Computed example of a mutant assay.
Amino acid sequence: MTEQQGVAVALPDDVAAMADVPADKGEVHLVHLYPREMSIYGDLGNTRCLAARLRWHGYTPVVHDHHPGARWPERADIILGGGGQDSGQVRVTDDLARHADRLRALAADGVPMLMICGMYQLLGEAFITVEGQRLPGLGILDVTTRGNATRMIGPVVLETSFGPVVGYENHSGSTVLGEGQESFGRVRHGQGNNGTDGTEGARTQHVIGSYLHGPILPANPGLADGLLALAARRATGEWVPGEVDDTLAHRAHQAQVRRLLRTAG
């Protein structure tokens, strides 16, 4: 199911048809923050990937698209957000501030979140513009980002607690982790947070921030199912995965790792 203007409706038939496993293990509610303003590099694909994989594993996905000014969904088992231009960030700032305490509470309560690029920055302590203006963030992740004239663009390979992760970065913000802040991963190829300290993204409890587009989840089924396990246990009390054929995803993933690390070597 998905939600349009606050009303839950069924997912398209093509999503449901991808699974032969009946969805009888319970509902898992996904909240996608600002899909119009903050999804310029295909990050909407992360939500679609999780919805499809839930079907394959035998769960019923309920997707809530949260737009600026809309009421907050009654239930959130996992929250996702994507990247956007500066103008997109400006358009969501007021609504994000309105729900700041709620998001902090959900993060503290263990709700898994995956925030990419612009939303990753907004969940940090602050974004400092090229002109020196300091824009406060939600403070869920102890990171500070500074805008600069140089963009960090290209494919990335990371080592993470979910295993190797591949993706594509395209950002001008340079992010520095606060003291004691865990990164999402260590860079094996690419620039990562700032191109100098070897870190990429940030992780606090079950909240992950990352610069990796692609979208990140279809090419990294281990990461996708790791997030779904957290969400499903929260929603239904247990994670009972189904039999999913990830042969093509693993081949694509491994091919990118081999190619990039061979080039780097």
Rank of each mutant, 00 (worst) to 15 (best):
T150I: 13
G88R: 08
E131Y: 07
R102A: 13
R134I: 02
S87R: 15
P136K: 11
A105G: 11
G118L: 00
A126C: 08
V111K: 06
L80Q: 07
M113N: 01
V111W: 09
Q89N: 09
H99Q: 14
L122F: 01
G124T: 07
A108Y: 10
G82E: 01
L158E: 03
P112M: 07
V111H: 00
R134H: 10
I140T: 00
G137K: 00
S161R: 15
N148F: 10
G81T: 00
G118R: 01
G118Y: 07
G118H: 07
R98I: 04
D109Y: 05
L106A: 11
G147I: 07
G124I: 03
D109C: 06
L114C: 01
R104S: 01
T144L: 03
T145G: 06
T160I: 07
Y120H: 06
T160S: 05
V130A: 15
Q133F: 13
A97L: 14
M152Q: 15
R91I: 03
G82S: 06
E131A: 04
F127L: 10
P164W: 07
V156M: 08
Q121P: 11
F127V: 11
I153M: 14
D109R: 06
F162Q: 00
S87D: 14
R134E: 09
I153Y: 11
S161C: 11
S87P: 06
H99P: 01
D86R: 14
V90T: 12
L103E: 02
A97N: 15
L96S: 02
S161W: 12
I140P: 03
F162K: 05
L158S: 03
V156L: 02
L96M: 13
A126S: 12
A107N: 02
T145R: 03
G137W: 04
M152S: 15
S161Q: 14
L135Y: 10
L122M: 10
G82I: 00
D95G: 02
R102V: 14
G154L: 01
A105V: 08
L135V: 11
M119D: 06
Q89P: 01
R91F: 11
T93G: 10
Q89H: 09
F127G: 00
I79K: 05
M119Y: 05
D86H: 14
S161Y: 12
G154A: 01
G88H: 09
L158I: 02
Q121S: 12
R98S: 13
V157D: 05
G82K: 03
R146F: 07
V157S: 01
F162D: 05
M152L: 15
T93D: 14
A107W: 04
D142Q: 14
E125Y: 10
G124Q: 06
G84T: 08
T129C: 02
Q133I: 10
D94G: 10
R98W: 13
M152K: 15
G110T: 09
V143Y: 01
I140S: 06
L123W: 12
M152V: 09
Q89A: 07
D109S: 10
Q85M: 13
N148K: 14
R98G: 13
V143C: 00
F162C: 07
R146D: 08
M119E: 01
G110V: 10
Q133L: 12
S87T: 15
L123P: 03
Q85Y: 15
M115Y: 12
I128N: 08
V156Y: 02
